[in-house]
Simulated assay, not measured.
Amino acid sequence: MRRVVIVAFDDAQILDVACPSGALEIANSHGAAPPYVVELATVQGRTTRSSSGIMLAGARRLAEVSGRVDTVIVVGGAGTAAAAADDRLLTQVRRLAGRSRRIASVCTGTFVLAAAGLLDDRRVTTHWGYGELLAATFPAVKVDPAPLYIRDGNVFTSAGVISALDLTLALIEDDCGPTLAREVARELVTYLHRPGDQAQISTFLAVPPPGNRVVRDLLGYIAAHLAEDLSPSALAARAGVTTRHLTRLFTAQLGSTPARTVRTARTEAAAQLVRSTALPLAAVARRCGFASAETLRTAFRQYYGITGDTLRRMTDMPRPIGA
C-alpha cells in the first residue's frame, strides 16, 4: 500500500486536507495499485479545528507514526505561522521526511517545510500572495510564486488551496499513469488536470476585480463561453448597454477594450489546452472561439511570441510579451 500522511494543525485550511484525501480515495475506487492509505496526523493526535471551524477528527500523534511512509503532505492555512514555529511539529516533519519516498506541501505549508530545513537550495512555490514573504524569510530557498506546483527531486510544493487537487493528480499520474489521473479528474468534475507550470494568476485575476458590475458579470460570461459570439455588439446587447458605453466601461475598469479582453482570454485558454492535451490546434481553436488554427497561431505569436507547436514542446509556460 502507498501510505500517505497528511500533516495538519489548528487553523489549517480544510480544502488542503480534503483535496488530496478525496482525490486519493477516488483513485482507489478506480483501481490504484497498490492502493493509497491516507492518515491524518497532528502533534497532539487529537481532534483539530480547521480555519473554517469544522473539526477534523481521527488524527494520529505524529510521534506515533512509524515505519515506512510513501508520501508526506504538509497543509497550509491560517495556522501556518504558528505551525512553522512549533519545534515539536518541525522535528516530526523532519523525521518523517527522512523515511518517506517524497514530501509535499500545499499552499503556505511550504513555510513549514522551509522552517524544517527541507527546502534549502530547492526551487519551490507557494500561494502567490506569500511568495515574497517566503523568499525573505528563507533566503536559501529558491521561490517561484508563479506555477501551480513544482517538483524538485522528491519534493513537491504547490500554490494556494485548490492547486492541492492539481498537485494530487500529478502524484497519481506519477504513480499510476495518466489514464488513472484523467479518470480521477473526470469523477471530480474538474475541467482538466492543469500542468504545474501553468500560471497561478490569469489575466482576469491579475488585477483587483472590476468595481463595475456590468464588467464583472461579463468577464465571468466570457470565461465560460469562449466558443460563442463574444463580439462587442453581442456583449453590449447582453449587458443592455450600447457598444460605445461598453467600450468606455472596459477601458476604465480594465485598461482594455472588450475585443482585446476576449482575445486575451481565448489565447490564454488555448495555451492551457495546448500545454495539457494532445488536441490538434484546429480543435483547440474551435473550443476557444478562434475562426481557424491559423488565427490561433497568429494570436500565439502576438501574445507569446512563439508558435503553438513551440508552446507544446516547451518545458515551462512562456510569459506574455511585455509581462
Rank of each mutant, 00 (worst) to 15 (best):
I6T: 11
V7T: 11
F9M: 11
D11L: 15
Q13L: 13
V17P: 03
A18E: 01
P20E: 05
L24R: 06
G31D: 05
A32W: 04
A33Y: 04
E39Y: 03
L40P: 03
R46G: 13
R46S: 14
S50F: 10
M55G: 02
L56F: 07
V65D: 09
I73R: 00
I73Y: 00
G76E: 05
A78I: 08
R88S: 14
Q92L: 01
V93Q: 05
R95I: 04
L96Y: 01
V106K: 00
C107D: 04
C107M: 04
L113Q: 00
A114E: 05
A116Q: 03
L119Q: 00
D120N: 15
Y130P: 00
Y130F: 15
G131R: 09
L134F: 04
F138I: 14
F138L: 11
V143S: 01
D144Q: 06
I150Y: 00
R151E: 09
N154G: 08
N154A: 15
A159R: 07
A170W: 01
A170Y: 02
D174M: 09
D175A: 08
P178H: 06
T179V: 15
V184H: 02
E187D: 15
L188P: 02
H193V: 14
R194A: 13
G196S: 09
Q198H: 08
F204T: 12
P209W: 05
A224S: 12
A227K: 15
E228L: 09
D229G: 10
P232F: 03
A237Y: 01
A239Q: 07
V241N: 09
F250S: 09
F250L: 11
F250N: 09
Q253T: 07
G255S: 12
T267S: 05
E268I: 02
A278K: 13
A278Q: 12
L279F: 08
P280T: 14
G289C: 11
G289D: 05
A291H: 11
S292A: 12
T295Q: 13
Y303G: 00
I306P: 01
D316L: 03
